[in-house]
Every structure is written in structure tokens, then in C-alpha cells.
């Protein structure tokens, strides 16, 4: 069975939406990090799917590779911050970080 670009676009948008919803609704550092990763993967899917329209060059696929690489770096840094956060709060609930306010 063959799926059209439209189907991929809908799927990617759905995953992106789930990721965004997760980021906004959940208050756990790690879950929020995973939500962002989900959003990035949705973007990758979209890039690769769209590349099927423009088969003569590989802009979309290259973009996806770059996103994957940067996401890895981002995750590494994110986990380091998460560890520092846990050492201070003994928890990864991001709601605990509300000292900075007026």
C-alpha cells in the first residue's frame, strides 16, 4: 500500500502536536526533554517526506541529518543540566524552579 505525502504530513503534524502538548502539559524535566525530541523527530519526518516531492536534490534529507546531530548535542547538554537540577532540588519536577520571580 502506498501512502501520499499528505498522509506523512498529517502524521508528522500529529506527532509534533503530541510533543508540544507533552511539553506544555507535563512538568517533568526528562519528559519535557523527550517531548522536544519528539517534536524534532516530527520535523525530521516532515523533511524526509517532503523531499520525496523534490527528488532531484537532497535538501530535506540533509536538514534532517543536521537536526539529528544538533538534537544529540542538545540532549547531552540537557541531561547535564537535568543532573545539576536534580542535585539541587532532589527532583526533576520543573515546577520547583520558581525562585526567580518578583
Amino acid at each position: 500500500m502506498e501512502f501520499g505525502i499528505g498522509a506523512y504530513a498529517v502524521l508528522a503534524t500529529t506527532i509534533f502536536g503530541i510533543g508540544a502538548l507533552g511539553f506544555v502539559v507535563r512538568r517533568n524535566f526528562l519528559v519535557q526533554l523527550m517531548s522536544v525530541e519528539l517534536m524534532l523527530n516530527a520535523v525530521n519526518l516532515l523533511f524526509i517526506a517532503f523531499n520525496r516531492i523534490y527528488v532531484e536534490q537532497h535538501g530535506g534529507q540533509s536538514f534532517a541529518f543536521v537536526v539529528i546531530a544538533v538534537a544529540a548535542a542538545e540532549a547531552a547538554l540537557g541531561l547535564a543540566i537535568a543532573i545539576a537540577y536534580h542535585r539541587i532540588h532532589r527532583s526533576v519536577e520543573t515546577d520547583l524552579a520558581d525562585r526567580l520571580r518578583h
Partner: peptide, 23 residues
């Protein structure tokens, strides 16, 4: 660490939003 947490999480979120637009 609180500042880094907020900026990092929200910044990554914003980057994902930007990327979606780029896609």
C-alpha cells in the same frame, strides 16, 4: 541552574517550533 533549566527547555521548544516552520 533554575535560569539554565528554564532557558534551555524553552529554548529547545522554540527551536523545534522554528524547525517545524522551516520544514
Amino acid at each position: 541552574i533554575e535560569a539554565a533549566t528554564k532557558y534551555f527547555l524553552l529554548g529547545s521548544f522554540a527551536a523545534a517550533i522554528f524547525l517545524f516552520g522551516a520544514a
